[in-house]
Design a protein around this nucleic acid. Structure first.
Lengths: 180, 180
DNA sequence: AATAAAATTCATTTTGAATTGAACTATTCC
DNA sequence: GGAATAGTTCAATTCAAAATGAATTTTATT
């Protein structure tokens, strides 16, 4: 029985533990990031484990490794796929999933699917207010006008800013310290 | 009894209803915005009603108008004050609160108090991973390296980007359509 | 200093969003 | 076509975060 011929079990065990630590850390990082922006932690966890995985994973892999139900995994994977953050390979009997490593996709998916719809909906609500502005208590007429203008203006700025922000995040390396 | 001398009750009632509608809409808009970024809705509501109010409000005003408890109002007001989004006037017996209308303060408060601490904490976690990179399964060594590099790089970009973003949102009016 | 009013705190309760899992549907393989 | 496996759905459950409110502390007023 040669000890030198193959990796010794202890080393394998250590490698596995380290790989699990690597995975665990990325799961945690993305889980907190998801939470921070009001998304389910499990979605972050799923993206995290896929991001840490050199090989694509199946839904069952993911559910087992994260200790979540198949139902959660299914829903989370769908949400992430719709964001454009992961890719499904359905060419085999059992689909496999891989993270798309360009984090910009995660951001732009969030912007497109969560942020923009809300911004547009409040924009409409605010536009409706504008029409009843003249009927508000005259005493503070100018103030009401200012306040509505402020928030409307900011909406417009945010909407104009978002595409630019994405472009900047994309190419941020080209603008290291020149502007700030 | 002259009908023309003072506002007729019906008109007053209408004015009140309209003012309430104005308030209600802003409460809703900011409440949804808060929720979108993972903050308590009540914090958005409080900022919303202060934003809609030409006159400063007391804590009891706010709790009553929003139908929330004094405890909630107290906590929400403190959080908003710490963000720098509202101002307390403690010169009188009963403190009053007013929204600071520069929405940039709301954003930069969120960035400073919620976003940056988290980004820095994951940055540390990721830096720790870097040291154990050589001990990970050799088969995918290059891939692990790439993945860790990607997420680290993105962290750095985000951290560098944030101050710039705030400056841009501040002065967005000067860059109307020239860049996007 | 005593009283009253305002504001805060925090243990408990509530609430709503996320998760589960069993039933169902779709797909693949023989 | 039928058995087996994969994947989805959604009503019911769980759980974490937010809200409550009674007790307490702080602050102002006489």
């Amino acid at each position: 029985m040669s000890l030198a011929s193959l990796p010794v079990p202890e080393l394998q065990a250590t490698e596995t533990a380290l790989r699990e630590h690597f995975e665990h850390t990325l799961v945690e990082v993305f889980s907190e990031l998801a939470d921070l922006f009001g998304n389910p932690r499990s979605h972050g966890q799923i993206y995290g484990i896929l991001f840490a995985s050199p090989l694509p994973l199946t839904m069952d892999d993911i559910a087992a490794r994260l200790g979540i139900s198949k139902g959660s995994a299914s829903q989370g994977l769908r949400a992430l796929e719709m964001l454009g953050a992961i890719e499904r390979d359905a060419s085999t009997r059992t689909s496999t999933y891989a993270a798309r490593l360009e984090l910009k996709l995660l951001v732009s998916g969030f912007v497109r699917q969560r942020l923009l719809p809300r911004l547009n909906s409040s924009k409409t609500q605010l536009a409706a207010l504008k029409t009843l502005l003249p009927s508000l208590p005259a005493e503070h007429s100018a103030d009401y006008q200012l306040r509505l203008k402020r928030v409307t203006q900011w909406h417009d700025r945010a909407l104009r800013f978002l595409p630019l922000a994405q472009k900047l995040l994309d190419t941020a390396s080209k603008f290291p310290t020149s502007i700030d």
